[in-house]
Design a protein around this nucleic acid. Structure first.
Lengths: 257, 257
DNA sequence: CAGTGGTCTAGACCACTTC
DNA sequence: AAGTGGTCTAGACCACTGA
């Protein structure tokens, strides 16, 4: 691994390079790894070598290597060098949009209705679902989402009213609980559980499917730094819904949207 | 937001700070956003202010803010400043481990068996599943995975033998196709599709469940930079399996594994 | 024009790990 | 002791964009 085909397209420093130098270094290294030229476990050039190859300062290559290490693509060890990681598992970034967005994407008209609404002090079951200890007041909602005239999803939701007081008086007439909460509690930590199960009698009736027919169930517990916010269980009739996740090995350069 | 409670625990530069300065800045800002003190859309201090607050150079705060921007937590606009993003959807990072790993995690003994194995030129269906155009030779496998004596999962797999020639002669006696491939083709791009469906007669028999009973189906198409590698469909009996994903708003600081 | 971010430099000191 | 990464500095020039 001499430093042969390097220092190309250099000498323009930070003028009109279209793409920045560290982005180019990143792409080069990513390419070497994704294409298999650099195999797992293989040692990659040390910072000093890359500095010379790209005729740049150490900070620039360090920035790239640090980013790759944070993404888990490489592992770095002092004195030893940096190595291509050996991945042990597949991982996927799942995007779970608002239900209205999902239905819109199908090109179908969306509507929803609130089927049940109860306010109460948290029971033991509620606390287990919310992952919280205190017996704060909670709001229980059952909501049905439609794509055209077909039930698309049934939503069972608990909202911790201590965290999100405004929910108690929100009618949820024009905006669904999920969308409303997304606006109220924007940055959080959530745990998702995804499984398949047969619809029970109640759900089946609500979804207008046969009892026991396969459904995709997505459960999510949302917490802020300090307290439980909401628990939601979304039940989708099978074959009507699919989660799609694309895993690209690194945070893609396009990060707007 | 003056620069009051800052410059604390400073003056130790890079000596024994336990945690690095930019990590502390990152935590502080994350805390402000996750706790809601800094609301979506709100402008956060510019780099110069943070430099003064933490008594450090601009590179240090820039590193933190760049990281936050790449993670999508903040948005940065020249001349305007940096702002807390308004998230539009939930997203989750799903880890899809090797099946042996899953079964091991349940504390049950694992084994698998190859039920079918055919080598052929890719049919039109094969090409559609692999997302490739050429009629390269493919290997079709059906494999059943057990947790103790109970069928845990049925795996239907296509391998592009042009990409992974060694698969043709690999017996898959001691190592499952998934694990073998993970070692051969370690860094790749994959697309996942997750849905619920009733087991058809054949699957039901293999899984020892009733026909039509709900199953979780995970499909994955894996490509290297240039070519299709493998397609796999994993069918798990419902209630036996659950995918779990935790979404923390940022690449967690612990990245060793 | 002026404010702000985007990128880069040429060094520096330190920590960790193996020899 | 030497190799390597981890972090930080004190500047610099440029690009973009609103006033």
């Amino acid at each position: 691994m001499g430093n042969g085909a390097a220092a190309t397209a250099r000498s323009d420093k930070q003028s009109g390079a279209a793409t920045s130098l560290h982005q180019r270094i990143l792409s080069d290294i990513q390419g070497n790894i994704l294409s298999g030229r650099w195999e797992p476990g293989q040692r990659i050039p040390v910072e000093l070598e890359l500095m010379e190859q790209y005729d740049c300062s150490r900070m620039t290559v360090n920035k790239v290597l640090t980013q790759l290490a944070q993404a888990g693509i490489i592992e770095r060890r002092r004195k030893f060098g940096s190595f291509v990681s050996r991945p042990h598992s597949q991982s996927a970034v799942l995007s779970i949009p608002d239900i209205k967005t999902e239905v819109d994407a199908l090109g179908l008209p969306y509507r929803f209705e609130i089927l049940e609404r109860h306010k109460r002090r948290a029971t033991r079951d509620d606390r287990a679902l919310l992952g919280s200890d205190d017996a704060a007041p909670v709001l229980e909602l059952v909501c049905r989402h439609f794509a055209k005239d077909q039930p698309f999803c049934v939503e069972y939701r608990l909202i911790n009213l201590q965290s999100v007081a405004g929910a108690a008086t929100e009618p949820f007439a024009d905006i669904s609980p999920g969308a409303w909460l997304l606006r109220q509690v924007p940055w959080n930590v959530a745990e998702h559980r995804i499984r398949a199960a047969g619809a029970n009698a109640e759900e089946a009736a609500r979804l207008k499917v046969k009892s026991g027919s396969p459904c995709l169930i997505v459960e999510r517990t949302t917490r802020s730094l300090t307290s439980a916010i909401t628990f939601v269980r979304l039940t989708y009739p099978g074959n009507l819904h699919e989660l799609v996740a694309t895993f690209t090995s690194l945070t893609s350069p396009s990060r707007s949207a």
